[in-house]
C-alpha cells in the first residue's frame, strides 16, 4: 500500500513537472534569464506548489501521525552552516549551466536522452563523490 502511494506521488509530481514544462530546460533557463526574454513559468509553478504544500503543513498540525506511518519524518535541523551555503551555491551554478535540477534531469532520460544520459550519469557521480567523502570523514 505504501509503495502504491509512493508511486502515485511520484507520478503526480512528474505530471506536474511535465504540464508546467519544467521538464524542458529551455523554460527553466528562460526563467533564470531575467535580463533576457524572461519566462515567468517557474514562478507560477513554485507558487502553486508552495501554496498547496503550505495547506498540507496546516493539516498536519491537526493530525497525530501520518495515515500510513507511525512517525513524521520531517527534517528538524535548524542550523545555518557553511555546508548549506556552499552546497546551495554549487547547485545554483550547475542548475544555471544546464537548466536541469534533479527531477527534470531524471525525466530527461526519456524526454531528451542525448542530454539526459550525460546529465544523470554525472548527477549520480556527484552524489557518489559526496557519499565517498562523507564516509571517509566519518571512519
Amino acid at each position: 500500500m505504501k509503495l502504491i502511494v509512493t508511486f502515485i506521488t511520484g507520478l503526480l509530481f512528474g505530471l506536474g513537472l511535465a504540464l508546467s514544462e519544467m521538464t524542458n530546460p529551455a523554460v527553466v533557463l528562460g526563467f533564470l534569464d531575467i535580463f533576457g526574454a524572461w519566462n515567468p513559468s517557474l514562478m507560477w509553478v513554485m507558487s502553486g506548489a508552495v501554496i498547496v504544500a503550505m495547506i498540507s503543513y496546516q493539516l498536519k498540525r491537526r493530525q497525530l501521525k501520518p495515515i500510513l506511518a507511525d512517525h513524521w519524518l520531517v527534517p528538524i535541523t535548524k542550523e545555518l552552516d557553511r555546508k548549506l551555503v556552499l552546497g546551495a551555491s554549487l547547485f545554483g551554478i550547475g542548475w544555471g549551466l544546464s537548466g536541469y535540477c534533479p527531477g527534470p534531469g531524471l525525466t530527461a532520460l526519456v524526454n531528451y536522452p542525448q542530454e539526459g544520459l550525460y546529465f544523470v550519469t554525472s548527477l549520480i557521480a556527484g552524489s557518489a563523490i559526496f557519499q565517498w567523502q562523507s564516509h571517509r570523514n566519518h571512519v
Binding site: 506521488t9 511520484g10 501554496i51 500510513l68
Partner: peptide
C-alpha cells in the same frame, strides 16, 4: 498550465506528507 502543474506538484507533496509522513 504552469500554475496547474505547480498545484499538482503541491498535491503530490501533500499526499506524501499526510499519508507517509515524509
Amino acid at each position: 498550465l504552469p500554475l496547474l502543474g505547480g498545484l499538482l506538484i503541491g498535491l503530490a507533496t501533500a499526499l506524501y506528507l499526510l499519508i507517509l509522513g515524509k
